[in-house]
């Protein structure tokens, strides 16, 4: 599945050409010539993949990336640059860049990179949703879910928390209700999705 693509590049011809090219792949793209304008207009509720030039006047690609991250926008980002030196590449990857491509960029390479980015965005979105669902659990319910994720039976959980097995069962029913699934496997998947950020 494709997502929205935001392209930030100070060169109009590049923006226009890439938009045209990605259009032929059926990838929707919004272009911005000025990182500041993008920062002002970016909408957290419309996640997409970012393609930005590393070297732009006033604000560099990496700085823009940093500013977005401060606002919690950690969408997959592809950096494109005319100066593909090793140091810049290393810095970009350390900052959590998804991919690093040199100009002139081959259309197929870019599209492939974008598809990977879309996959990453899928994961990101899933994780975001999982986190939202998990956020509805009470502290005790979360505790119980973590133990379930470790493969403990209700009795074991009850013993560990010094509660009755019936209470645990009640918690588990609530959990299933809130997460929208009674499948233990699904519940565990959601619980683990939140793990890296904890």
């Amino acid at each position: 599945m494709t997502h929205r693509v935001y392209l930030i590049d100070d060169d109009e011809a590049v923006r226009e050409a890439l938009a045209l090219l990605l259009g032929t792949y059926g990838i929707g793209i919004e272009t911005f010539g000025d990182p500041a304008v993008f920062l002002a207009h970016v909408d957290e509720s419309k996640p997409g993949c970012l393609v930005m030039d590393l070297r732009m006047p006033l604000v560099s690609g990496l700085q823009l990336h940093q500013k977005l991250a401060e606002r919690g926008i950690t969408w997959p980002t592809i950096m494109i640059t005319g100066h593909g030196d090793v140091a810049a590449c290393r810095r970009a990857f350390k900052a959590g860049i998804q991919d690093f491509l040199t100009k002139p960029v081959d259309g197929e390479v870019l599209v492939e990179a974008l598809h990977q980015a879309f996959a990453s965005l899928d994961t990101w979105l899933e994780r975001r949703d999982a986190r939202a669902l998990l956020g509805t659990l009470t502290e005790r319910e979360r505790e119980v879910l973590d133990m379930v994720a470790r493969g403990w039976a209700s009795k074991e959980i009850a013993a560990a928390l010094d509660l009755s097995a019936r209470t645990i069962d009640a918690h588990r029913a609530n959990i299933a209700d809130k997460l929208g699934t009674s499948s233990v496997a699904e519940q565990v998947r959601l619980a683990l999705m939140d793990a890296p950020s904890r």
């Binding site: 011809a13 050409a17 032929t24 100009k103 002139p104 259309g107």
Partner: peptide, 24 residues
């Protein structure tokens, strides 16, 4: 190199786009 990178990028992308359009 820097000055040529931008037009080349546009040229390449647009050419590839045109190629794809032609092959449609």
């Amino acid at each position: 190199a820097h000055e040529l990178t931008q037009p080349l990028t546009a040229l390449l992308s647009r050419s590839q786009a045109a190629l794809r359009l032609a092959q449609a």
